[in-house]
Design a protein around this nucleic acid. Structure first.
Lengths: 143, 143
DNA sequence: TATCATCTTGAGACGGCTTATCAATTTCAA
DNA sequence: TTGAAATTGATAAGCCGTCTCAAGATGATA
């Protein structure tokens, strides 16, 4: 059952801490969300329409924003839309984005992360999160 | 006179190459743009209202996007708005953003840039631009 | 310098994405 | 089980950025 997932506990804690309630919709959206790397609210709306035709788009937006506050998701403004990334499940990752075809390649680089910490410390900051996006042309689009 | 600025020449070349024209508005917006690190279209609209009350917001958007195509500016989706960064004058820089007070500290780190290239190459990409934002708490906000 | 095809502008309409509103419903502590 | 408080769904509203188009500006050419 999904109730045993680590993220579900994180959500539960966040809800308890802020006097919020665990609803059927929040459970539904969380389990669907955790199955993917990144989604838009619109995407989830269509995906979940099959399971619950009455689930409103506003609820999805509200819930995804809630996940961000709980540290389960991270919002990313891409083009005109907002993408919600699943940071809790696979850990943080960065993006390599093709400006030609829109392909997104994910990557992680410990060395870069280490240098980021260094820069932050040098400036008196303590990093909570970060975002690194490299834009360019993939091999196919270069021809 | 502003006509001798390096960026003005870059713009001129871009315009010539694409059969576009150098207008009073484009000159006006460019010189104002170069005086700042990053602006939104709205900000420039108000700034320039004093110099030319009839300058339209659409023209500012169009012109800032033109600057992006010419390689003078870079668009960055920040929160709900689009920020246009002046990359031509000071070179590219990344951001360290305090989630407490909103302070933005700019930095550059060649080593990080080099590693980015490495990651891109490994994935068959050629980087055109990138965005790196570190979010955290500054020294003051931590207390 | 005068001409004129072409590009640009300004003003507002328009459209996409996200949030606000609010009555009805659900949750959960007591 | 009860009831105060939170949540939901539907839709209106808001915001940001782009599109439209008639009027005006630009600049290559003669």
């Amino acid at each position: 059952m999904s109730k045993s997932l680590k993220e579900m506990d994180v959500l539960r804690q966040h809800l308890a801490k802020h006097q919020l309630k665990l609803t059927r919709q929040r459970e539904l959206i969380l389990t669907a969300f955790l199955r993917q790397e990144h989604v838009t609210a619109e995407t989830m709306y269509h995906q979940l329409a099959k399971k619950d035709p009455h689930l409103g788009l506003a609820t999805i937006y509200r819930t995804l924003n809630l996940f961000c506050e709980a540290g389960i998701a991270q919002a990313r403004h891409f083009g005109t839309q907002t993408q919600y990334d699943n940071i809790s499940h696979k850990g943080h990752h960065d993006h390599l984005i093709c400006t030609g075809c829109g392909t997104i390649v994910e990557f992680e680089n410990c060395e870069i992360e280490r240098l980021q910490e260094e820069v932050a410390t040098k400036n008196g900051f303590v990093i909570q999160t970060h975002r690194l996006e490299l834009y360019g042309l993939c091999a196919r689009c270069r021809h």
